[in-house]
Amino acid sequence: MSLDKQTVAKVARLARLKMDDAELEERVPQINTIIKWVEQLAEVNTDNVDPLPSPVDIGMKQRKDEVTDGNCQEDVLANAPESLEGFYVVPKIVE
């Protein structure tokens, strides 16, 4: 499976990475090299093999559904590029 420039542009869009034409041109062969390399997994027989999402089976824990943290608005906003009156500020999204 080989990716063309249009597909790489679509992936960049999905990944929210701005890329100009020159960068797209440069990335197409790089990405294809890696994708081609990982495709060697196709030769492994994985019939009846379940996926392994996590290496150690420790099970999900449950805890009481109660508030254990919070009331730290200042901490939460401390690193915001822009904030106002306790809110994050973003560019206008409604025309």
Binding site: L41, V44, P51, P53
Partner: peptide, 11 residues
């Protein structure tokens, strides 16, 4: 998902 299956074989 394929990679996760091979991951199990490696484990």
């Amino acid at each position: 998902v394929k990679a996760q299956r091979v991951r199990r074989l490696i484990a």
